[in-house]
Design a protein around this nucleic acid. Structure first.
Ligand SMILES: [Mn+2]
Ligand SMILES: [Mn+2]
Ligand SMILES: [Mn+2]
Ligand SMILES: [Mn+2]
Lengths: 224, 224
DNA sequence: GATATTTATAAGGTTTGCCTTATAATACCT
DNA sequence: AGGTATTATAAGGCAAACCTTATAAATATC
């Protein structure tokens, strides 16, 4: 049943699942970009994954996980987010750094270890960055949220989650108090796709449009 | 400073250190045997390690860790044994299984993680199998013990440590109550390198000569 | 000292996962 | 429908770790 795949394979599966928000087809180019490999390499790898029945590839359309592929991806993400909780809550490793550490540990973790960790942690539901932890069966419950870049000035929001995560992004966000649970007020949006001026806990910050697409919030109030 | 090496490199370093009890030269054949690779592969790898100044190889004599190599090996062993403690004490993973799980985690662990884990665990000194945990600086304190195969009938001992560890060995020992802390009485030794008949907690067990070389004990009494 | 064993090296091969450059096929857009 | 952009594939290469088979060199043993 639970065959273990190598790190590379697992990163592809995980990334495909993280990119497929609405179960749609993922362009190999998008995959290559996120994994920082050439499109040719990504194509080769997708073919290999296809042979192992982990993905389905429709040429010129994109890649999609199969049932097994999706299940395995969920297990890796589950293990990743549980490790993040452990690292942050019990080992006091900085919020911005747990992601990259967990990204290594996840590949050294089998199902038994994941479940033992889950029990130890008391079955948490979200990672330190607000993202939901898939259940043992692979089910993932994502809260209804909006990305910061779609909102208008005058709104007050609660930061819910950061997605997708990356070391540099989290480092930057940490230094600007952008963390789940914090309240954020949109003061102003500069023209020409300019920065979003916000206030988080009395302090003003300027956030770029691109970064704003990674910040998922819920609106909790308006100035008017 | 703390460059990270790949899993293969780390396993070679770790194995060399574990085999060098008295700082002597390790035969490449011994290394190959324990790592379950051909001697040719081990030789190639030793050459690569030599280029990286991690080992010194004296042809027809053996391999030895350099200062850096030895330090890095200690870090891996430290991380391994700390993980074992965590897995056994906090996640309730069976005594015989923590070794193989830790052998994967150790390669996904950097110094910061190791030290955070050490602090979380309260700076333990031994792994669940009784082996000493190297200190952060690499210093390793090994208790004075004897291997079971060198002792005579009539003696009562305390089991101190199992070394070196392997999944199959630990599985076998667990099923025979051979664990650190348990008392063992040597009832009889069969001739022609036959099994050692022992009693552990009222129950009799027969242990082979080869297995006995992995069981380190201290004598605590004699029948006479 | 001759022989057997151990150890080292040489030669050729495989797999995985990456790379670049170039070309072909398809999709998208006006 | 035509042109541009995207996507796929072909071709050739590289490095790390493995493998086997064969030979050479050193060491150990009688
Ligand atoms: Mn990862
Ligand atoms: Mn996270
Ligand atoms: Mn290992
Ligand atoms: Mn151990």
């Amino acid at each position: 049943m639970h065959e273990s795949f190598n790190e590379s394979t697992e990163m592809y599966l995980k990334t495909i699942r993280e990119l497929s928000i609405d179960n749609d087809l993922i362009a190999i180019s998008a995959l290559a970009r996120r994994l920082e490999v050439s499109t040719v390499s990504a194509t080769e790898m997708v073919h290999r994954l296809e042979e192992h029945k982990l993905v389905e590839h429709t040429p010129y359309k994109g890649v999609q996980l199969t049932g097994i592929g999706c299940q395995h991806a969920a297990e890796i993400i589950r293990s990743h987010r549980l490790w993040e909780r452990f690292l942050a809550d019990h080992l006091n490793i900085p919020w911005a750094r747990v992601h990259e550490v967990a990204c290594r540990l996840e590949h050294a973790t089998d199902t038994k270890l994941t479940e033992a960790l889950d029990a130890f942690l008391g079955h948490p539901t979200r990672c330190p960055h607000g993202n939901p932890i898939p259940q043992a069966g692979g089910v993932l419950k994502t809260a209804v949220t909006t990305t910061l870049n779609t909102l208008k000035p005058g709104l007050t929001c609660e930061i819910i989650r950061i997605h997708p995560e990356s070391a540099l992004l989290l480092e930057y966000l940490a230094s600007h108090d952008v963390k789940p649970g914090n309240q954020l007020h949109i003061d102003e949006i500069a023209p020409f796709n300019g920065p979003i001026m916000v206030t988080i806990g009395e302090k003003p910050h300027a956030l770029g449009q691109e970064i704003a697409t990674h910040i998922f919030v819920t609106v909790i109030g308006s100035d008017a």
